[in-house]
Amino acid sequence: MELWYTEKHTENAEFSIKVKKQLVSKKSEFQRIDIFESYDFGKVLVIDGYLMLTEKDEFIYHEMITHVPMAVNPEIKDVLVVGAGDGGTVRELTRYETIENIDMVEIDRLVVDLCREYIPQTSSKLDDDRVNIYYEDGLKFVREKENKYDLIIVDSTDPFGPGEDLFTKEFYGNCYKALKENGILVNQHESPYYPNDAVAMQRAHSKIKSIFPVALVYQAHIPTYPSGHWLFGFASKGLDPIADLKEEEWNSLGLKTKYYNTDLHKGCFAIPNYVKELLKNA
């Protein structure tokens, strides 16, 4: 007998991982959460049937969503993380001793609880003294903040279900307001490849572009995400991700990373023509 987890990337394309055993399956007020033990990818977190992370390749996503903004502004002290219940983003941030405060807003407490229990690889730093976890809607949280954060990271699920409001213009606008003068917004920006993901990507970009003076995207290769080609958004009130890169300063920190480095930083903003086209028409 074989047990497989399959995610539909489109109606006609699937991605499957052979599963050793199912560790847990629970339904929260918001969504269904499953965690599998797999042969090739370690533990796999799945929400409402969609793959969120695997232990094998989560480092790519979590390094790219954190070190890119941190290398542009090493002065970042106050960070808001929206979503990110698995803890991977917070884990990377806590490696910076200069960060003083990390507020994490996750709507679904059960995601955090299950990741703490089953996936310590990502959740291990959620108990860091600098981390404050708020279990509420990200939009509600951010709309009550003004001129407070140096960095906001939107580590959300997809633009449907409980994370839907994190892809709206009112959310990005309220993030702008919650950021300080040198503030940076980095967000999970979907994929340009399959048409449905690409539409979500375009919509997010056009909304962010209408609010932030600097709005760019950068890419990473994440093998277990649909098409493997994934984008992040970098938006700011003025800082440019390449011109303002503090290369030496970041390298002097001596952080050991598996995917990110400052050469890759400069390269990841170079994007394929078809993606440029999509962004231009967004």
């Binding site: 809607d137 939009l139 509600k140 709309r143 409980p162 839907e164 409001d165 709206t168 213009k169 009112e170 959310f171 606008g173 309220n174």
Partner: peptide
């Protein structure tokens, strides 16, 4: 609750 938050946030914006 999400739709309500969206309306309130959009009015703020």
């Amino acid at each position: 609750a999400m739709e309500i938050e969206r309306l309130v946030s959009a009015l703020y914006e």
